[in-house]
């Protein structure tokens, strides 16, 4: 239920071309995450699917119906806003049931549906409160509740968790994933957060200035980034990118190695320098080193590390873990 197809969709704001030409298939029932730097057009794409913006060109198809020129309410979508956008003058129950009230559903049916939804989201005790009497996490749940009520085919989320603190975000992440498993609707989710993208998505779409850089599963994108942009964008801490002598050795312009594939070696090798900064995360330790001839190189080491800032360090990596790029694109040829 809820396949979304974007065919050559374009969007201009006056002279500003935000989406030059975008085609994308969002499979039904998938959890698709849109990521990309600020201003790359993520929200615009979501709003185009929702019908809050009119496409300048192209077609938007939801479940074989061309919705390009349909009203938002006719598209069988629901949207959760970053600001939650709850109606301040209505109670939680009224907020959740507003769509049904507008659709002239009978009072009894509305009440039934609202209590079903409240049960899914554990909002039963809060139904008579106003939004301003709720915590951030509770407001978030109400916003999701409002989206669920009308049984939409597609849920659209625009950075829904970015106003929550870290622990609540972790909890909501799990709840949303469970919700997705439970109601099996298509979800399109915009985020800035690496962890959200990696943990929640079936499919990640990486955007750069309104253009799709790569579409794939999280592990696809992580293990086989098509471009330097994706390589830099996916993964935290970022992939180390090295140029010059070491790249030439591998017959490419830029050589990428993920921090967890950097190992500390006892003997001098290609990468030698001194430790600039150490971050102890508990399970792992991040070591930032000043390497001669290169920028800062990050290494992720399992467990604790008995070294300190200023110590001499030698790094090495296995050649099976390298990512090779020329002209910004991945090289898949053998070397």
């Amino acid at each position: 239920m809820g396949q979304v197809i974007l065919k050559s969709v374009q969007k201009k704001f006056g002279d500003l071309e935000v989406i030059p030409n975008l085609s994308l298939i969002i499979p039904k029932g998938s959890f698709t995450v849109l990521v990309g730097p600020s201003g790359c057009g993520k929200s615009t794409i979501l709003r185009l699917i929702a019908g809050l913006e009119d496409a300048t060109g192209g077609e938007i198809i939801i479940d074989d119906i061309d919705v390009t020129h349909l009203e938002p309410s006719k598209r069988k979508i629901a949207m959760v806003f970053q600001s939650y956008a709850l109606y301040p003058h209505m109670t939680v129950a009224e907020n959740i049931g507003f769509g049904l009230t507008l659709a002239k559903v009978s009072k009894k049916d509305i009440q039934k549906r609202v209590s079903e939804v409240a049960k899914i989201l554990q909002l039963e005790k809060l139904l008579q409160r106003k939004p301003k009497q709720l915590s951030g996490g509770q407001r978030q749940r109400v916003a999701i509740g409002r989206a669920i009520t009308r049984n939409p085919k597609v849920f659209l989320f625009d950075e829904p968790l970015s106003n929550l603190d870290a622990s609540l975000r972790g909890q909501m992440r799990v709840e949303l994933t469970e919700l997705h498993a439970q109601i099996k609707a298509t979800m399109v989710y915009v985020t800035h957060d690496q962890v959200e993208a990696m943990t929640m998505a079936d499919q990640i779409v990486v955007l750069n200035q309104g253009v799709i850089e790569q579409v794939g599963t999280p592990m696809d994108l992580y293990d086989f980034p098509d471009s330097l942009f994706v390589a830099r964008f996916i993964g935290s801490p970022k992939m180390n990118i090295m140029e010059g002598e070491i790249a030439e050795k591998y017959f490419c312009q830029k050589l990428g190695v993920r921090p967890e594939h950097m190992e500390i070696s006892k003997e001098e090798g290609l990468l030698n320098g001194s430790i600039r900064h150490i971050e102890k995360l508990g399970a792992d330790t991040l070591v930032y080193s000043e390497i001669k001839g290169y920028d800062t190189i990050t290494a992720r080491v399992v467990g604790n590390l008995e070294m300190k800032i200023g110590d001499t360090i030698h790094l090495r990596f296995d050649k099976k873990h390298v990512h090779r790029f020329s002209n910004g694109n991945r090289l898949n040829t053998q070397f």
């Binding site: 809050l52 806003f81 600001s83 109606y87 769509g99 409002r146 009308r150």
Partner: peptide, 10 residues
């Protein structure tokens, strides 16, 4: 957002 949310609500 409030106006947009209510447009989506129908």
């Amino acid at each position: 957002d409030l106006i947009e949310a209510s447009r989506i609500d129908g």
